[in-house]
Nucleic acid binder design. Sequence first.
DNA 1: CTTAGGG
DNA 2: CCCTAAG
Length: 620
Amino acid sequence: MEMDDSHGTMVNKSEENDFEKKGTSDPVVYQLVRVEGDGTLVPATEDDVLQFEHFLHNEKVDLPPIEDADHVEEFFNNDCMLLKKPDLEDGSSKLETVEAHTQKLGANLEENILQSLDDSLSPPSDFRIHSQHSDKLLTEQGANVTRQDNASTETTKSTVLNDSCCAEKYKADACSRSVCDTSTDPSVSGVNSSMPDFSILRGEVCLDDLTIRELQEAFRATFGRQTNVKDKIWLKRRITMGLTNSYDVPSSGCVVKDYKIVGKDAKNDMSDMDERAKTGLRATSVVIYPGNEGDSPSSSYYQSEDQEDSSKRVPIHNDEPQGNLLGEQCTDKRTRKPTKRYIEELSDIETHDSTVKNSSPAKRPAHDELLMNPRVAPFNETGSLGTIYPTRKDTFGGFSVHVPYVSRMRRGRPRKDFISFADKGPSVEPKGIQPSVEMILVKDGDKGNHLRKVPEVPLKVSSENEHAEAVDSKGVRNLQAKVCSAVSKPKIKHGLTRKHHRAWTLSEVVKLVDGVARYGAGKWSEIRKLSFASYSYRTSVDLKDKWRNLIRATQTQLPAQKDGACPRKTNPSIIPIPPSILLRVKELHELQSQGGGFTAPVKFSGQDGKVLQGKGSGFL
DNA sequence: CTTAGGG
DNA sequence: CCCTAAG
């Protein structure tokens, strides 16, 4: 049962998203990703892989001690989440995703994959990672711990939504456990009455004053079923939750306060809730649209939750602040659905996205699919760690819920991104949703994908909002360009962040030169497609720029070297471009420029051969 | 979208 | 690298 229960599909590989199918065995697929400072997840690029590889190979990887999932998360959030793996041949290969089945708690990370992390993770972590296909070696694996909630780990699959609410449970459980080892009790699972009776709670009863018995009563009243739990705190929380979630929260006075009392954790939760409330983003995963008080929906909801609770009750030790992430989610449970506005905007974004995507069908396979659709409610969890949780609305047992949304891929070039809407305009967005929309796109290997997110983009929606879209077709690119590496604060910078700088490697330069030799300078897109297939992050513009730089280098560096001793101390860190290459660049340049822009593909594109046919050969 | 160029 | 203007 545990086993069955524990799956959470995090990231899916090539196939259709498993999310849709709640198969009992949805594998969790992890992928190598990079976590930007703002929590954005960016699929690792070949470079990342390489980098990391080096990192691992060359140095001692100072992995912070990781004691539990939370820590893992923390750790991962700090940087790239790359898992070491034995041999990387060439960074060019696709990042393989790792399928991870979350198993019972306590399961250790398996395979050598997480070797490096292993030591620290072993105990409590509940990850289990398997290479997606056993035959598929663990070449480059990464775990995209997109946030393996304890929740999802622990619970799971069955009801992704439950997870969120479970967070609460965890805490509660933890509490109860610590307080009085009373188990929440299996008997609770029984689905009894469907009509909770709130009468008891109607009054201004303060949970604090109630005895356990009374609390149990209240619980029963709230959830319509009995409980044997004797943990007061747990009960209170439960009840509070129930009340809070019951549509009439506001009127039930005792709840909130009591809730807070639970601990500062709770407080944090609350504040977080507030935050979210402000932004309009809901961390909640369960959204119930109440009809009547004590509606069956809600009751059933709780039931299921509890069932899980009782049946599962996995030992999760996290009373730490981090645990709050989870807790928060559940705390916030009954959130109101996104505002219309929000939805609209989302769809807008989506529209853009699709638009963009469609424009370049040939380029990428067709994985793209919908990344975002109105139903996808980016759920921004910017906890201390800045983790982000995308969620997607789904229907579960009749009501809509938000489940962690995990990707559907998108094209490789980061370019297309969306954004949030920010405050630029005078009144564009009510409260300026700061880092509002976030997306997490994780893609499968293929050509490393890059996704980026733009924290906020100032849509210049001065007056013609309507045209915004049109404008965007153009603007999108620019906006995207402002991608953020987020290493810095996704602050006020209008989401203007630079693309992660990637130093050109010698091999890249060689390829570039070669490409130019072959296709001619100016055929950047060609070169990119043919010679840089494996370097997805180099755009034609990049190539062009690089070439330009090479030319410059040619004109300065080269002569300098010849003429005299190197004027400057050659900075060892800066890979000097071998004169030979420079020379070649120069020749090509001269040749092509003189040749009057003729771009005769060179027949002999000898690797090293200086394919020089007389200058200006050709016309004229 | 692709190029060229300026920044 | 980014941004824009042009095809």
